[in-house]
């Protein structure tokens, strides 16, 4: 299904930008789900200086690596927030 809609990339091509934050219990359940159903959602990445940096799907990527799954569904996205105003402005001044 994914191979028709999304590219399949080697996990080694994708660079994580975030560490694992789920608890070991949660992560174990994610891996069990991936064993049963595969990686259901494509991993989103941006290309910067020729490298593919993951922006969404870090746990799925790490789970796939742990399970020795070599290729995962992936989708290139553009940097999503470049057009946003400075994030500092997004925080209400009352809580600064």
């Amino acid at each position: 299904m994914f191979s028709q809609q999304f590219e399949m990339l080697k996990t080694s091509e994708l660079l994580a930008t975030h560490s694992i934050t789920q608890s070991r219990r949660q992560f174990k359940k994610l891996k069990a789900d991936i064993i049963q159903n595969g990686v259901r959602e494509p991993i989103k990445y941006v290309v910067y200086q020729g490298e593919k940096f993951v922006v969404d799907g870090h746990h799925r990527l790490q789970a796939a690596r742990d399970l020795r799954i070599h290729k995962v569904p992936a989708e290139e996205v553009q940097l999503p927030f470049l057009g946003y105003r400075n994030a500092d402005d997004l925080i209400d001044t009352d809580v600064r």
Partner: peptide, 17 residues
């Protein structure tokens, strides 16, 4: 990252590689 995605990646590119 949200504040400046390119700068974030630029500053961290070597570490992430």
């Amino acid at each position: 990252f949200v504040e400046n995605p390119e700068q974030f990646l630029s500053k961290n590119v070597d570490r992430l590689r």
